[in-house]
Each structure stands twice: as structure tokens, then as C-alpha cells.
Design a binder for these strands. Structure first.
Length: 548
RNA sequence: GGCCUCAUGGUCAAGCGGUUAAGACGUCGCCCUCUCACGGCGAAAACAGGAGUUCGAUUCUCCUUGGGGCUACCA
């Protein structure tokens, strides 16, 4: 077989060489140990947790080492492409603090290693494709889809391994005349890799996360170039990550099975191998079994879900960090106010197995994250969320910023900050009573007390409440009021001797709380009433007493 | 079917040949307390099973079982 001739037949337009490519994309000038990593998503417009997990890992690894993070768009599957997807992705990741130094961007490509869209790199791939053909390492295949399906059916019937290899590889050793004939007729073809591997051979490979893995050589003649001349993921991965000088490939472990093929490709192309970090998948509980989170079945996989729920980006970021590096939580406890970037992220702390996504844990992380924020920041973020997802609440919230900030300040700061809400969408339930539009008495008072008694107490209280009281004074009044009706001023006294009292001061406060907030639980009543103001408090007390 | 991979409480996980097998979330109880939230204290809860190696295995090896993934001209 005249490989040089074949290569010329297949790629008449290619006149550059791999050497030219090496010159065009020189090695990066970076300090020792700097990691060059990338995100290489398909532009489907769907940004999910997996992207974020991979993105955070790549971002931390590269930026922490003084390296480079770039964005390469893997748009080799035209069927899946969605318009505007790249912008959606960049925006989404930016919210989570992932910024690219290089690659595809809203203002075009940044950096000298582009183009960063695979669909625009055809001529680069073809240089290497031609080289492989010249060296007898690749060949054209004219099989139709139907032929391939028939092959697969036959293999299943025979109990053979699946795939295009060995005797099944019809075009692997065809004479050049046959190929010329097909080419002359304009029959579409794909370029296949001529594998020399055997599944009899196993070898060991070290992945940075998985550790040492034993894999089997690849024996399948995988497709390198599709019939439209665009490469498959595998071929593009080898060429791009070599020419873009990637040092660390971070990706999901669903790629592990194709690793042998990738290693084979790098060797055939004469490329130096990057380091690999294969991340375990995010799973979820489905009935009694675990499974990988799926795009179609699980809305919580989409980043937009967390946005709509009102999780602060920091919360999701921190939660993922706790999954990725198990020592992150300990670090956070010791450094409650430090910037997450100060945490020393390491691939060594990453778990090789997939982990179950734990919504309860996310909530806990989020409550802590929010409790560390200032009231102003809570206000800003909550307003931002409400503006998009709850307009009515938004207008109420922003009508009096100072008042809203005061509400968010209740129980904030100090050693034991309140942790009432994990997401902005819970805010309305938590603080809705501050607004007449949402205020409603939803709970009935304890049945052991006569309604007339409660009514009297509330009425009395409406007479004595003063917004000018200090907290001590305020509480003294409630105690005194209670005592007048036979309630113990100290809950302890009541508990020690329940027969002697009508109830305790806690019950009295409970009546007031119900009247003022409509609920049996609320943040500190002294603060609440202060924010509501004397007029509103009195109005609610009187209305409550009247309607009982 | 073939190949790969993973295996400590319900979940996330420390551990890397000798430990009373951490911690966090969740659950439950008690305390604090004007309710709630916070916080404090405490409880229940785990090395999948079987062979080896070793004086000694959660830890190393193998097998079984179970989970997950891949097996496209998708990534």
C-alpha cells in the first residue's frame, strides 16, 4: 500500500506539516509547576453541576499553581449545538467565580493557541490526519450506517466483542484501488485509526485522582474523522490538548474506558502525555439504588435550578468544595471569614468514587454561608433574586431598603448568628409578616387558655407597649402583665410548680407573638416590634384581640 | 455479553498494619431560652462476605457479592 499516495488522495488540500504546527503553537513559557488546564464543554446550553465540579477543579488547580485556565468549545457534534450556549456557559461559571484566562469568550478568541472552537480547527486536525495516513496509522472506511449496524447485530449473535476491529474491520486492509474507486464515486468516508493493540495486553496507568489503574489495550479501529471531516472527541482531545499545551486534563471518569485509546493516539502522534484527573460522578438516590445524576430526569442537575431556588452561588460553590476536598469543612471552621481561594485545594484529597448529592447538606452549608454575610449583602442578593423570581416580593422588599436591612440584621453577627434560611425563596415565609400584604394569623392559640383571657391580655398589652423601651424594660412589662393574670414571671418557676400558675411568661409572649406575627415562632420579638413600629404593633394587637 | 472502576454509620467522609474506628450533615434526647433559630451536652448508627500475607488486618493480595460507568461518524 502506498500510504503517501493514499494520504495525498484523502487530504489533497493539506500542505502544512506537524512541524509547522509546533512552530505555530510553541510551548508555553510558564514557571515550574504551573498547571495548564481547561474546560471543554459541548455547547448544549445546559450547564450542570458536573460542569461546575470539573470547572472548579480545573480552575483551582491552574490558578493556584500560577498556571492557565482556558475554555475550548467542543462543538464537533453539530446536532447538539445550541445558539448562545457559549455565552450562557461563560456567564454561569462567572457567577461561581470561574474566570478564564484564555480561549473562547464573548469578544472572540483570547490567546494564541486558537481557534478555540473545534469546528474551526479542521485544517489543523487534517494535518495530523494526513500524517497518520502517511505512516500507515490511519485509513479510510466507507462502511455505511447499515453495514455497521449489521456488524453489531452479528457480533451480538456470535457473542463476540463489539466494535470495528480484526476481521470486522472491512476497510482496514483494502487495496488502494478499491479506495480510489469509492473516492471517485464520491462515497462518504470516515478516517479510522489502525489499532495495533490487543485486549490480551494489560498495563498500568497512574491517574492523579484514581491512583494506579489497570487497563486493557484498545484493539478497536475508532473513528478519528467523521464523514464531514470534523474529528471525534478522541482525536480532537489529542491534537488540541497537545497543541494548546495542556498539562492536566480534568474530566469525568466516564472517560476512563477510552483512556487506552487516548494513550495510543498520543503515542502514535508523538505527543507528550498530559496528566489525567478523572473525577467520579455525582450520584443521586433513586428509590433504593444510586445512579448518576441525569440531565433528563433530574432538574437539580441544572445550575439554573439552584439559581431559581435562590441558593447563593457561594453556597453551591462551598458545597462542591466540601465534596471535592474533604478537609475543606475543617478549614472553613478554622477560617470562617477567609476567602475560599485561600484554601489549599489538592487533587490528592479527591475521592476516586462518585458521591451522592446531598440536598440537606447543601442547605446546611448554605445556612452557614448566609449567616456569615452582612445584612446589606443579604439584602442585595435577596433583592436580586426576587427581582427575577418574585416581583411582588421584590417591590415590597425594596420599597424601604433601610427597613429590610434592619429585618435582615435581627440575630445577625456575633458568635451565634441565626441560621433561619438556606435559600432566598424561603424568605417570604420567614419574614412575610413584616408586610401587611403577607401578614396573616395562621395559627390558633393554645386551647387550654380561654380566648377571652388572651383577648384581655393582648388588649392590656396594647396599652403599655412602648417602642422606646430598652429590651429589659420591654420584657419586664410582659412579665408584670403576666403576673397580673397569674402567669409565672420565670418559666422555671412554672415548670417547678405548674399548679400554682395559669402558665408562664413564655405563654404570654406567645399570645403577643401570635397577634403581631401571626405565627407561633419568630425571631426576637423585641426587635420585630421595634421594626414594625408602635403604630403597627398596636393596630395588630387590637385587631387580634377583637377578632378572637 | 465484554471492559473499566468503586466499596468505613442513612449521607459526605478521616484512617494509609497495632486507634476506645475521628468529624460533619441528617435523626433522636436533654440543656439554654419570650417562641423559633443559634449554641452546648449526649445517644443511636459503619469497616459487604470469604480466603490468604502477617505476631497482628478497616488498612496489603486474590475471589465473591453489590454499586457505578463505558461499550456511536455523542461528548
Amino acid at each position: 500500500m502506498d500510504n503517501i499516495k493514499l494520504a495525498g488522495l484523502l487530504f489533497p488540500e493539506v500542505n502544512e506539516t506537524p512541524e509547522d504546527m509546533e512552530k505555530r503553537f510553541p510551548p508555553r513559557d510558564l514557571k515550574e509547576g504551573a498547571i495548564v488546564s481547561r474546560m471543554a464543554p459541548s455547547p448544549t446550553g445546559f450547564v450542570h453541576l458536573g460542569n461546575l465540579v470539573q470547572g472548579i477543579t480545573s480552575e483551582r488547580l491552574s490558578h493556584q499553581s500560577g498556571g492557565v485556565l482556558f475554555l475550548r468549545v467542543e462543538d464537533t457534534d453539530r446536532k447538539r449545538e445550541v445558539k448562545g450556549a457559549v455565552q450562557i456557559l461563560i456567564d454561569a461559571l462567572r457567577h461561581y467565580g470561574i474566570n478564564f484566562d484564555e480561549g473562547a469568550s464573548e469578544s472572540g478568541d483570547i490567546g494564541i493557541y486558537g481557534p478555540y472552537y473545534q469546528s474551526r480547527r479542521a485544517e489543523i486536525y487534517h494535518v495530523y490526519a494526513k500524517k497518520l495516513v502517511e505512516e500507515g496509522k490511519a485509513y479510510p472506511c466507507f462502511c455505511t450506517e447499515e453495514e455497521l449496524e449489521a456488524m453489531r447485530a452479528e457480533q451480538e449473535k456470535e457473542g463476540a466483542n463489539f466494535g470495528y476491529f480484526g476481521k470486522w474491520a472491512k476497510w482496514r486492509d483494502r487495496p488502494i484501488e478499491d479506495i480510489e474507486e469509492m473516492l471517485g464515486k464520491g462515497v462518504p468516508w470516515v478516517l479510522r485509526f489502525r489499532s495495533t493493540g490487543s485486549i490480551e495486553n494489560k498495563f498500568k496507568f497512574t491517574d492523579l485522582i484514581k491512583g494506579e489503574v489497570e487497563v486493557t489495550e484498545n484493539e478497536i479501529d475508532h473513528v478519528l474523522l467523521k464523514s464531514d471531516g470534523i474529528p471525534t472527541y478522541h482525536f480532537a482531545h489529542a491534537v488540541d490538548d497537545h497543541l494548546m499545551r495542556t498539562t492536566h486534563v480534568v474530566r469525568g471518569d466516564e472517560w476512563l474506558p477510552s483512556l487506552p485509546f487516548h494513550l495510543q493516539l498520543f503515542r502514535a502522534l508523538g505527543f507528550k502525555l498530559p496528566k489525567y484527573c478523572h473525577i467520579g460522578p455525582l450520584m443521586k438516590m433513586d428509590g433504593n439504588s444510586k445512579r448518576k445524576l441525569s440531565k433528563r430526569k433530574d432538574p437539580e442537575l441544572a445550575l439554573t435550578y439552584y439559581r431559581a431556588e435562590g441558593f447563593p452561588e457561594e453556597s453551591v460553590y462551598e458545597y462542591i468544595l466540601t465534596i471535592l476536598n474533604s478537609n475543606y469543612e475543617d478549614w472553613r471552621r478554622i477560617n470562617p471569614d477567609a476567602d475560599t481561594d485561600e484554601f489549599k485545594f489538592s487533587y490528592k484529597k479527591m475521592n476516586p468514587a462518585g458521591s451522592l448529592f446531598d440536598a440537606a447538606k447543601l442547605r446546611d452549608v448554605s445556612k452557614n454561608v448566609i449567616s456569615r454575610m452582612t445584612a446589606e449583602r443579604v439584602y442585595d442578593l435577596a433583592a436580586e433574586w426576587a427581582k427575577e423570581y418574585d416581583e411582588e416580593f421584590y417591590s415590597l422588599l425594596t420599597a424601604d431598603k433601610e427597613r429590610s436591612v434592619a429585618i435582615f440584621s435581627i440575630g445577625r453577627g456575633g458568635n451565634k448568628p441565626r441560621k433561619d434560611y438556606a435559600v432566598w425563596s424561603e424568605l417570604k415565609e420567614y419574614m412575610g409578616f413584616f408586610f401587611d400584604e403577607y401578614f396573616k394569623v395562621t395559627e390558633a392559640p393554645d386551647e387550654k387558655y380561654e380566648k377571652s383571657l388572651i383577648s384581655h391580655i393582648i388588649e392590656d398589652y396594647s396599652q403599655i407597649y412602648s417602642a422606646d423601651d430598652e429590651q429589659d424594660e420591654w420584657f419586664e412589662k410582659i412579665k408584670k402583665l403576666g403576673e397580673k393574670y397569674g402567669f409565672a414571671a420565670k418559666t422555671k418557676d412554672y415548670k417547678a410548680n405548674p399548679e400554682a400558675y395559669a402558665g408562664s411568661v413564655a405563654d404570654v409572649s406567645g399570645f403577643i407573638r401570635l397577634a403581631v406575627t401571626g405565627k407561633s415562632s419568630s425571631p426576637d420579638m423585641y426587635q420585630v416590634m421595634k421594626i414594625l413600629g408602635k403604630e403597627k404593633v398596636t393596630e395588630r394587637l387590637i385587631a387580634y384581640a377583637k377578632n378572637l
